[in-house]
């Protein structure tokens, strides 16, 4: 028997506490699962929170249809191995139903279309709490986010009128129709997540590690060449490069980085030495300085 728990990561203690509060305070929570490293970390934390019982809520993936195939394969395997319940809702369906319109052209992406599909799914299942893997260090509008963040009937975030959060106490009281977005790893940095994945031997999709890939350059960033999904000009030449992904979103908005980090230890080392932020490789934030704040107001993750 190990002696005491004092060496346990304080951030892990905090996250487990938050996840347990969700299970206790809400009727129908759900864990928003993207297949990325942050949501995979959340799954591990949720397992820890309720062991030896199963995670008492389902996972939900809002599938844009533009995900990396590796991510989807990984998702399905994880869910099966852990015996979890997975709900999938497709952006393609929202497009087919005419609820959202597909973007076209050079910077087109389905990333912002996810919001409609997400809000519809929340309404369909009457979810009252959605656990997400957003971190405050990712982006400066996210730095303002509460741990329990209330969304109105339209899923919107009222950033100037947020509830104060004192000590450890989380106020999850809401009106019918409202829901709360919960961010258990709010206080983690990118490096904290990677170090945790290393320490806990958590499996993650292969695209986070160095591999050769058909890519092309645009605006100084490296894009995966998949002509079905990612728009490409004729003069943008495809070349094979040794790359990995630091963050995993849609193929159309997630750029790769040149890297030979083939295992978790080298990835952690690379992040430690990195001089560019994680979201520097996401075109969705570069659209404008206030891009994230705007999307969050409308109900984005």
């Amino acid at each position: 028997m190990t002696k005491d728990t004092s060496k346990v990561n304080p951030l892990e203690n905090e996250a487990i506490y938050i996840i347990r509060e969700v299970a206790a305070q809400f009727e129908k929570p759900v864990l928003l699962f993207s297949g990325g490293k942050d949501s995979i970390t959340l799954v591990r934390l949720a397992q820890k929170a309720f062991y030896p019982a199963k995670i008492p809520f389902p996972l939900m993936h809002i599938d844009t249809g533009h995900n990396f195939p590796e991510t989807i394969a990984f998702r399905d395997r994880l869910v099966k191995e852990l015996g979890l319940e997975l709900i999938v809702r497709n952006v393609q369906d929202s497009i087919d139903e005419g609820k959202v319109k597909e973007e076209s052209g050079r910077y087109s992406s389905r990333n912002s279309l996810q919001t409609t599909t997400l809000l519809d799914a929340i309404e369909e299942f009457k979810f009252d709490a959605c656990i997400g893997g957003a971190r405050r260090d990712e982006e400066k509008a996210r730095a303002k986010e509460r741990i329990f963040s209330v969304r109105d009937d339209f899923g919107q975030w009222d950033e100037k009128n947020q509830r104060p959060e004192l000590f450890d106490m989380l106020n999850g009281q809401i009106h019918l129709g409202q829901n709360v977005r919960v961010f258990p790893i709010s206080n983690w940095t990118e490096l904290d997540v990677w170090s945790y994945i290393e320490r806990e031997h958590i499996e993650i999709p292969s695209i986070y590690f160095a591999h050769t890939r058909e890519t092309f350059l645009r605006d100084g960033l490296i894009w995966s060449s998949d002509d079905e999904v990612v728009y490409r000009d004729e003069n943008e030449v495809v070349e094979e490069r040794l790359v990995r992904f630091r963050t995993v979103g849609d193929m159309s908005c997630t750029a790769a980085v040149l890297s030979d980090a083939a295992d978790i230890a080298s990835v952690v080392q690379e992040i430690r030495e990195s001089t560019i932020s994680e979201r520097g490789a996401r075109i969705d934030d570069k659209r404008s300085e206030a891009a994230m704040e705007k999307r969050k107001q409308q109900g984005y993750f």
Binding site: D4, S6, V8, E14, Y17
Partner: peptide, 8 residues
């Protein structure tokens, strides 16, 4: 054996 302060 022991649960330290602030551990979940």
């Amino acid at each position: 054996q022991t649960a330290s302060r602030r551990s979940s």
